[in-house]
Amino acid sequence: MTQTAIAPIAETLFLAEPVVRLIGGQHRESGRIVFPCPPDDSFEPVPLSPRGTLWSYTVQRFRPKTPPYRGPEAFEPFALGYVELPGEVIVETRIVDVPFEALRIGMPMVATAVPFGADDGGEPRLIYAFTADAITIDQGAEQ
């Protein structure tokens, strides 16, 4: 099963193809960009930059209470943080595939999508996440 075969956890939250991009909302009058896009005519949905830098981070060390958490009963600590998308908005996100001790404020990040297992026996859902941006690290420039 490819990732794109999995339904996203919410509609109009992010684009999975050709690259993962979160969908923000740009206020039609002020131009302010928010995330997620409110279900409101005063905001126009806009795809956000897939790349940014880590603004802050932490590690969730205990299983969040259910409800509202719907992750698997077997809990593994996970990283999360805020990623600054230049000139747009700073978004909160899970962080995947980065060792906890390697997390640094300012590190380049790129959007991705990963399956998230629901705890109620339902199908996994696709969620957005960010990971270390190897391209920016290697080439020193945004693609």
């Binding site: 956890i9 919410a10 939250l13 997620p36 969730q60 969040p64 409800p67 509202p68 958490y69 719907r70 992750g71 996970f78 999360l80 909160e92 899970r94 998230f116 629901a118 859902r125 969620i127």
Partner: peptide, 10 residues
């Protein structure tokens, strides 16, 4: 939105 709590950010 519900997804915010689902994924463990709440």
């Amino acid at each position: 939105p519900d997804w915010y709590g689902d994924v463990g950010l709440m």
